[in-house]
């Protein structure tokens, strides 16, 4: 009976190690990082062009952590997924960042920009097919 929780933990670990999940995590973290860095950035400029004033904010550090996490998930996913597929799917960042800026930061989105976001989503969905083929090869 004691085996059950261990079995569940193993199942969770196996699911977490799935390359497509890690790729998705990497993409989400890198989009989240942009929003976190923006939240941490001092309003209009701050000191110096490097924007080091942002380092005083906890948001900025969370953003940096998200970027590091994103890199590790990305490298792990690359062990199993073709670079061409992974990089194309990572294009989703260009839809996620404007959407998150709209939802979290309250920035406005023009109609032309909505069209661009829809095109990016369509492109990612079409490219996702080869990714499932990669999955079968594992």
């Amino acid at each position: 009976m004691n085996q059950e929780p261990a079995g569940l933990a193993l199942k969770c670990a196996t699911a977490f190690a799935h390359p497509i999940l890690q790729l998705a995590l990497s993409i989400l973290l890198s989009a989240a990082a942009q929003v976190l860095l923006k939240l941490g950035a001092p309003p209009s400029g701050g000191e110096g062009w490097l924007g080091l004033g942002g380092l005083a904010s906890a948001w900025t550090w969370l953003g940096i952590l998200a970027l590091i996490g994103s890199l590790f998930s990305w490298l792990y996913a690359l062990r199993f997924v073709a670079l061409s597929v992974a990089f194309t799917l990572a294009g989703a960042v260009h839809a996620l960042v404007p959407l998150a800026s709209w939802l979290v930061l309250g920035e406005s989105i023009s109609s032309r920009r909505w069209l661009g976001i829809l095109l990016v989503i369509a492109g990612v969905l079409i490219s996702a097919k080869p990714a499932t083929a990669v999955e079968e090869k594992l």
Binding site: T88, G91, H94, R112, L115, G116, L119, V120, G123, I126
Partner: peptide, 21 residues
């Protein structure tokens, strides 16, 4: 695969629209 070429062209066009507007 051909889908990837189609996908990447859509994404590139989308990226251009998102950032030009």
């Amino acid at each position: 695969p051909p889908q990837l070429w189609i996908g990447v062209v859509l994404i590139s066009a989308g990226v251009a629209l998102v950032f030009v507007s």
